[in-house]
């Protein structure tokens, strides 16, 4: 299962990391080299292994339905890159580029 340059492009897209064109081939090589070692695992017979999902088989501890939550020493506006009126702002989504500004 060799990782191709196209795989790197696809995975980088999924991971939302811009990768320089010039790095694509070397990254494919690096990932291949690492994954090559992983192929070792194919030797292990796991047909009858019951995979436990997560550690701790006793089930998860649940929380009662009341507050207060763990507090914040400062409001989001103090650490978010851009805020207005309490909202966190981001560049407008591509799907809504055409949205007009609502009349005040």
């Amino acid at each position: 299962m060799a990782v191709t340059r196209e795989d790197v492009v696809k995975v980088a897209k999924l991971a939302n990391i811009a990768i320089d064109e010039t790095r694509l081939d070397s990254l494919a090589l690096e990932l291949n080299a690492i994954l090559g070692h992983m192929d070792e695992l194919r030797k292990v017979d796991t047909a009858r292994v019951q995979t436990a999902e997560g550690l701790g088989s006793g089930g998860q501890r649940l929380r009662a339905d009341y507050g207060p939550p763990d507090g914040l020493a400062s409001a989001p506006a103090t650490f978010a890159p851009e805020t207005r009126d309490g909202f966190v702002l981001v560049p407008r989504l591509a799907t809504h580029e055409g949205s007009p500004e609502r009349a005040p």
């Binding site: 909202f87 966190v88 702002l89 500004e101």
Partner: peptide, 15 residues
């Protein structure tokens, strides 16, 4: 919630 039409050119996020 994403509010798209409140401010010009940006999307406003309320969590």
């Amino acid at each position: 919630k994403s509010v798209h039409d409140r401010y010009n050119g940006v999307t406003a996020i309320d969590l």
